[in-house]
């Protein structure tokens, strides 16, 4: 059975739909509650993890510290591990941005029209329409910026999803029925290809988490257990870095082989940091 991944600009309704889907389908749920388990496993404060899912660091902060990417990788690794089990509804963890290339993952975006959101903001915050409009524009930009910075995908782009439901037109119970119906399409059933892809994605996430603990600028792709790592290094440190990556990644269960592709860290070379 498929994985159902929900994303929304209305968190309360996203949660309500998820809970109803769990009841209807008898699936397991993966929700922000797992952040406490990420905390236990990686020793990162839950509040910091929740903040990671919301706030984008500045360019300078990202350059100087890989902690944000590391925290994202820890969340991603934990979520994907849980998605290895079928029959799961996942929400509130940005999985729609990193569970990619999995044919049995049904990605659903639940939205309200901007006009409705503005009316809600006016009512909740007691501010004029113009200010509510501005607040909403900023909020939409913030989410777009975050998703691009975190996973290089724009979560506000409808083409990222298999199904987009407008709650102004389709009510909550109808939305549950619609998602349930779509999830029963044969095309969303797990197959050998999609299960292997998910297993490769899980291994990539584990490797990335391990490497980002002590390194920055790491991209990982796994093909049938063989891990490809893409990174940057100063010319003089290339061999050392390749060895370090192979040692760390090679120890992870399920890794059959490691290939490391290193490009020059031009910024470091030019600024004379090569020997630092």
């Amino acid at each position: 059975m498929p994985l159902i991944i929900l994303s929304s600009n209305s968190k309360e309704e996203e949660k309500e739909i998820a809970k109803k889907l769990l009841q209807v389908k008898g699936y397991g749920g993966v929700d922000p509650g797992i952040l406490s388990e990420v905390e236990a496993k990686y020793h990162i404060d839950t509040g910091k993890l929740a903040e990671t899912l919301e706030q984008t660091p500045s360019f300078f902060e990202k350059m100087m510290s890989g902690k944000w990417q590391y925290r994202l990788a820890c969340i991603e690794a934990e979520v994907i591990e849980r998605l290895m089990k079928d029959n799961t509804v996942c929400w509130g963890l940005a999985a729609h941005l990193y569970v990619v290339g999995i044919s049995h993952a049904l990605k659903v975006r639940i939205i309200h029209a901007n006009q409705t959101r503005i009316e809600n903001i006016v009512e909740q915050q007691g501010i004029p329409v113009q200010r509510a409009q501005k607040w909403l524009d900023t909020e939409n930009q913030r989410r777009k910026k975050w998703s691009l910075a975190a996973f290089n995908r724009d979560e506000t782009d409808p083409s990222e999803y298999d199904l987009v439901i407008n709650l102004d037109q389709i009510d909550l119970n109808e939305a549950v029925l619609t998602i349930n119906g779509a999830a029963s399409y044969r095309k969303f059933q797990p197959i050998t290809y999609s299960m292997k892809s998910l297993s490769d994605l899980a291994l990539s996430a584990k490797v990335r988490t391990t490497l980002l603990k002590s390194m920055q600028d790491i991209r990982v792709q796994t093909i049938d257990g063989t891990v490809l790592v893409f990174t940057k290094a100063f010319k003089q440190k290339k061999i050392e870095k390749i060895k370090e990556i192979k040692d760390l990644a090679g120890k992870i269960e399920g890794v059959r082989g490691v290939e490391v592709h290193v490009t020059n860290n031009l910024f470091g070379d030019i600024s004379g940091n090569a020997n630092s």
Binding site: G101, S103, K187, F188, I191, T192, Y193, K196, D224
Partner: peptide, 21 residues
């Protein structure tokens, strides 16, 4: 293999789908 092709094959009745190699 792509997600689109895999989904098309399943919709059209394939029993399973596997990527080479």
């Amino acid at each position: 293999a792509t997600v689109e092709v895999a989904r098309e094959a399943l919709s059209k009745g394939a029993f399973d789908f596997i990527a080479k190699p």
